[in-house]
Design a protein around this nucleic acid. Structure first.
Lengths: 140, 140
DNA sequence: GATTAAACAATAATCATTTCAAATTGTCAA
DNA sequence: TTGACAATTTGAAATGATTATTGTTTAATC
């Protein structure tokens, strides 16, 4: 997973400018395991950078996604989430509170049947587990 | 997978009315393997039922989803898709043309690690394979 | 056929996301 | 260190998917 410094370096390599806004977003993403939505990130950065606009957040996330430095997760019906951990892994989402947690890739091992391989060339895959978390279970 | 008659029966059991519009939607879904979006379904039914409104399509799909008779698929960034095949299975999506195809469940067999099972009670899972289809591959 | 609750169509509202034009700001060379 | 320029930020407005509202119509039941 990238540190802010990694991302600064990678932005420089592509001649993208390092602005305080972008730096703030990098810091929020650094080591983040919470799978924040664009709105979450906007709300967080606004505390230290009150004038930042939503557009800037979206654009920066878009750049990061196109660079392959964050993953856009579409497991939630409501909104998209961003994940700075680009190493192959999977997710479990609680149907009660929508919290998303990580599942390591090694243990999960889905197989693609031979028939499909003649029609498609897969490049990656993602497993979404749906269920109920401990907290939501105890509330029921 | 449900036939129109199955859905009529299930609607009756819940005291939902059978209208020509709903019947039209049932027929479109019957045996459908194309994973249509709400817009696709709207466009199709409009040919035989030009006065139908978008709202009616959404509401009917919403009822069907809540009844568990169709699945709402969120694997496409752009819009949601509906799948009348509610038997556990998975999907492969072409990154070139966004076409979604089915993958049978038996062959795919993801495992959820023990550690996670103490935190979450999974109820279902879904695997999304991403790749390039034969057609798009030949175009490159 | 009359009654009534449910479903319809039309329209407006909402929500996440994108686009746009103008103002601002990093960057780099002088 | 400064100035120029292109990239970036901003705020507002647009978009596209989806949901809510509201009168009108209709399916189901008698």
């Amino acid at each position: 997973m990238n540190t802010s410094e990694d991302l600064i370096e990678k932005f420089r390599n592509r001649n993208y400018k390092i602005t305080p806004q972008r730096l703030g977003i990098f810091k929020i993403l650094e080591g983040n395991l919470d799978h924040p939505s664009a709105e979450d990130i906007f709300a967080t950065i606004k505390k230290t950078y009150p004038t930042i606009s939503f557009t800037t957040v979206y654009k920066t996330l878009d750049i990061l996604e196109k660079m392959g430095e964050v993953l856009k997760i579409t497991i939630d019906d409501e909104r998209k989430h961003y994940d700075p951990n680009t190493y192959t892994h999977h997710h479990i989402i609680c149907l009660g509170c929508n919290k998303i947690s990580d599942v390591d890739a090694e243990s999960v091992n889905p197989q693609l049947p031979d028939g499909i391989l003649q029609e498609f060339t897969p490049s990656r895959y993602h497993v979404s587990f749906y269920g109920t978390c401990k907290d939501c279970l105890s509330k029921q």
